[in-house]
Amino acid sequence: MSLIVVIEDNIDNSRMVAKLLRVADHKVLVAEDGETGLTTVFEHHPDLVLIDLGLPDIDGQTIIALIRQQPELANIPIIAFTAFPPDTAQAMATAYGCHGVITKPIDTRAFVGQIEGFIAKPIS
């Protein structure tokens, strides 16, 4: 079981991904905005962060940068969760130090495997 923080303002999306991850026996904490997400990550030091890039208060990219600046969180897997076109999403994810990208809408059959693959992946 891993602890996963989902930072996503769209409730339909966060409910769906949280349900899929919980069914796979992971513990999930959901934050609906960047500030709450940042506090949750700082408090709980999760095994993975799944973050929407378009958040209502602070941009997802800025949140990622703030997480990465904490030495103890510098290497945790962060996955960008976005509806940006794949090329743009990948370029941004790489530039901001994400481990990967999952584009919306998700493939519900593959989603948990994708997340678990990122958790297992060695830090690059």
Binding site: D9, P56, D57, A83
Partner: peptide, 11 residues
Amino acid sequence: YIVPMPMNSKR
């Protein structure tokens, strides 16, 4: 939208 850019009340 292609780039949703949501806002909260403060924004």
